[in-house]
Design a protein around this nucleic acid. Structure first.
Length: 764
DNA sequence: GATAAGAGGGTTTTT
DNA sequence: CCCTCTTATC
């Protein structure tokens, strides 16, 4: 971009072409609170980046005097890249650009003692939290089956999202858990964290808030430090984050938030859309500007997304329109395609084919993304892509840092750095096996509880008594000695990667895996090597631990390669691609059953916003698909098309049934045309669709093993027509020979053989 | 205390 | 279906 080289103040103007003069001035006016309400693809991030560049470029503040907050690490990374490309060297030193959590962690490290912590505190992940909750539940004699640790953890999380410390939880809510013990557990939990010298994600913000509230002088320092505050995705802030921002913004009042109420998709994590609706009240004198001109997508994509989101009540409401200078020639723009298929395999096959043909026409894999509702849906695509050799990258997915071996290695490192970290101690004290079993651990824990000291500091004293004998004693002694030795090495300046290797070697962990002949063992060793490699990118152990505790991000490698991206809808927010595939639009999958069970209409509306986010990720072409049968958690189920499919506007959507699935309107005739043409056949009125609905859940429609690649059939055995042409991966093209009873026989052209390809079983 | 087999429970999204 | 936690047995 040419603007990168131009003087900052002049160059930045070119980034704001779509804004009217008044809006442009507001963005570049640097005084007072500003809210930018911006629909999808209207250049939200660009506005924010431009403002940041303007502030720095015109020397209103040094980079280190600006605070820029995002929600995801990916967004932070992107923001930094964009700012640097606009500013060049002037942008060096954007120290306070990051996620809410990473920035508040930085601040907390500096003033940890004000929150009763040491600056080496560890940050617990979800798994640690749940384990801690379990211990508390057991200690309090609560039935862990009736009141699960997970539930307690989410309850506490919810309170922290709303900035409720144990003293502030409303009494009626305190009774939600184990007949009123909820608040007690919360209190114990907090006390335990203090002893462990640890905090969880929520604490990072809560501690910040308390420290600021109790130390006005310190807060004043931060007011002076942060002269300009910029916030991305404001609609996703929770109460704690809002309070944190308000405290920091009290000084300069120069806070600029951008957001879109239609893209609020983190309600389950405590996000309050209210924050954005209330902005003008919270920040008196605030300017509000609206961006409604979309630069990203074709009119069909926009129309489809708008029509779906229009079904939501309780939104600010805005009308997006297509910029006349959009890259895509409007005349040639393709409609959004909606496709019904037999099962998930057919779906992944079709999508893989589409990607191949896109690439054969000169497109890149990079241009394509598959956006799913839940990560279990990713596997089908991975399998197909591997089979065809399509390069792909999973973003998010099963997380590297959540693997057992990685967590073990990290626990060793944590313990070396922070001896009070009991959770780390418990995790690795007998891993690999050292003869320290449950009994010994319970003994140690009861002593530790009495003394109020950590396991690690207390164990040497217990070892001097005869309380623990034999193998357990030997194991513990060796363990303690090792950790002390490693700690010395760290203190004496051993490089952290070398330390990690030493620990893995001397603890016997590598040995254990090498002796393990199971197929996973090699992967685990590889993962550990990868971990050490990743550590090398940081210059200290502290820096590394800080990073992984917060980031837990696997997307580091592989960026920039030409790969199809597979990710969840949540992870896709803020990103865009020319071609976007949106599979799995079935009731109970998307909108997700769980979300609707738990949050009813509110949940449904959030799911719909997710659909809106999904569609608007596409620049040129969006493909929506649903299937008749889906394997969910190992069980075959017949499923219905999502209600969101029905909400799509007929004028802008093309219904395609390339595979002869008669559950799809017109599917049994191989029809291709507009949804409007299908008229009354759509909206569940087609015979196949109707039957699907009636028979939902009644048939076990699993095809026999040798016909798993079946790609053309219908909603039930009686819907097959003789002579109907179908395709089967293994046997090629064929025509239906008989549909008798519950068996379907096909005549295959290539082999000339008749074959039973599907058996329908009606459960008793 | 270690190991193997069995029962039971939970299956969304993320910092 | 997969993973964890519990129980039984050595």
């Amino acid at each position: 971009m040419a603007a990168a080289k131009a003087p900052a103040s002049a160059g930045n103007e070119t980034y704001l072409e779509g804004l009217n003069p008044e809006q442009r001035e507001a963005v570049l006016t640097t005084e007072g609170p500003l809210l930018v309400l911006a629909g999808a693809g209207t250049g939200k991030t660009r506005v924010l980046t431009t403002r940041l560049a303007h502030i720095i470029g015109t020397r209103l503040a040094w980079p280190s005097q600006t605070l820029t907050v995002t929600f995801t690490n990916k967004a932070a990374r992107e923001m930094r890249e964009r700012a640097l490309s606009m500013l060049g060297e002037a942008g060096e030193g954007l120290r306070w650009l990051g996620t809410f959590h990473s920035i508040s962690a930085q601040i907390l490290r500096k003033h940890a003692e004000l929150a009763g912590l040491k600056s080496t505190f560890t940050i617990l992940d979800t798994d640690d939290q749940v384990r801690l909750c379990k211990q508390i539940i057991l200690a309090e004699n609560i039935d862990p089956k009736r009141w699960t640790p997970r539930f307690l953890a989410s309850l506490i999380d919810g309170w922290k999202n709303r900035a409720l410390t144990p003293g502030k939880v409303p009494p009626e809510e305190a009774h939600q858990f184990a007949d009123g013990k909820g608040i007690t557990c919360y209190q114990i939990y907090q006390n335990r964290l203090k002893v462990l010298n640890a905090c969880d994600f929520g604490d990072l913000l809560i501690h910040n808030i308390t420290i600021f509230q109790n130390n006005p002088d310190l807060l004043k320092e931060y007011h002076d430090k942060f002269r300009y505050i910029l916030v991305d995705e404001y609609q996703d802030t929770n109460v704690a984050q809002y309070l944190w921002l308000r405290l920091l913004a009290q000084g300069s009042q120069n806070i600029c938030c951008v957001g879109d109420d239609d893209q609020s998709i983190y309600g389950w994590r405590g996000a309050e859309v209210d924050n954005i609706l209330r902005f003008e009240k919270d920040f008196p004198g605030a300017k509000v500007i609206r961006l409604e001109k979309n630069y990203r997508s074709t009119k069909h994509i926009l129309a489809a997304a708008s029509a779906v989101i229009a079904n939501n009540k309780g939104r600010l409401g805005k009308t997006l329109y297509v910029g006349d200078d959009n890259a895509i020639d409007e005349i040639d723009a393709a409609k959004v395609k909606v496709r019904g298929l037999w099962d998930g395999e057919a779906e992944s096959r079709l999508i893989a084919d589409d990607i191949e043909s896109w690439v054969s026409k000169g497109g890149k894999h990079d241009d394509c993304a598959v956006l799913v509702r839940a990560s279990w849906q990713m596997r089908a695509f991975e399998e197909r892509f591997i089979m065809l050799g399509i390069p792909y990258r999973v973003i998010g997915g099963p997380r590297f840092f959540e693997r057992a071996e990685i967590r073990d290695a990290l626990a060793y490192l944590r313990l070396v750095r922070s001896p009070d970290d009991d959770l780390a101690f418990e995790r690795v004290v007998n891993q690999p096996k050292r003869g320290v079993g449950n009994t010994s651990l319970i003994k140690l824990q009861s002593y530790a509880r009495q003394d109020g000291r950590s396991l690690f500091t207390l164990t040497p004293m217990v070892l001097q008594t005869d309380e623990i004998k034999g193998g357990a004693k030997r194991g513990l002694t060796q363990f303690i000695d090792h950790v002390n030795l490693w700690r010395d090495k760290l203190a004496n300046g051993m490089p952290h990667t070398e330390l990690a290797e030493t620990i893995l070697e001397e603890s016997g962990y590598t040995d254990m895996l090498q002796k393990d002949r199971s197929p996973q063992a090699q992967t685990r060793l590889d993962n550990l090597k990868e971990l050490v490699r990743a550590m090398g990118e940081f210059d200290s152990l502290a820096g590394f631990l800080e990073h992984i505790e917060l980031v837990m991000d696997t997307s580091a490698g592989g960026a920039g390669e030409d790969q199809v991206q597979i990710l969840t809808l949540h992870a896709a927010k803020g990103l865009e691609w020319p071609v976007v595939f949106l599979p799995g639009w079935e009731e109970e999958v998307f909108p997700s059953k769980r979300s609707m069970d738990e949050s009813g209409l509110k949940g449904l509306e959030e799911e719909r916003r997710l659909a809106y986010v999904g569609i608007t990720r596409a620049r040129q072409q969006a493909y929506i698909s649903f299937v008749a049968n889906r394997q969910i958690y190992g069980r075959w189920q017949s499923v219905l098309p999502s209600r969101f499919v029905d909400e799509l506007p007929h004028d802008h959507v093309e219904a395609v049934s390339e595979t002869g699935y008669s559950g799809m309107p017109g599917g049994d005739t191989g029809f291709t045309g507009s949804v409007e043409d299908l008229g009354e056949r759509s909206n569940y009125k087609s015979p196949g669709w109707k039957r699907l609905k009636e028979n939902a859940g009644r048939f076990d429609t699993r095809p026999p093993k040798d016909a798993t690649n079946l790609s053309a059939t219908s909603g039930g055995p009686e819907t097959f027509r003789k002579g109907q042409r179908i395709f089967h991966d293994k046997f090629g093209y064929g025509r239906i020979a008989h549909s008798e009873g519950n068996k379907l026989t096909v005549d295959f052209e290539k082999s000339g053989r008749k074959k039973v390809i599907a058996t329908f079983v009606q459960p008793a």
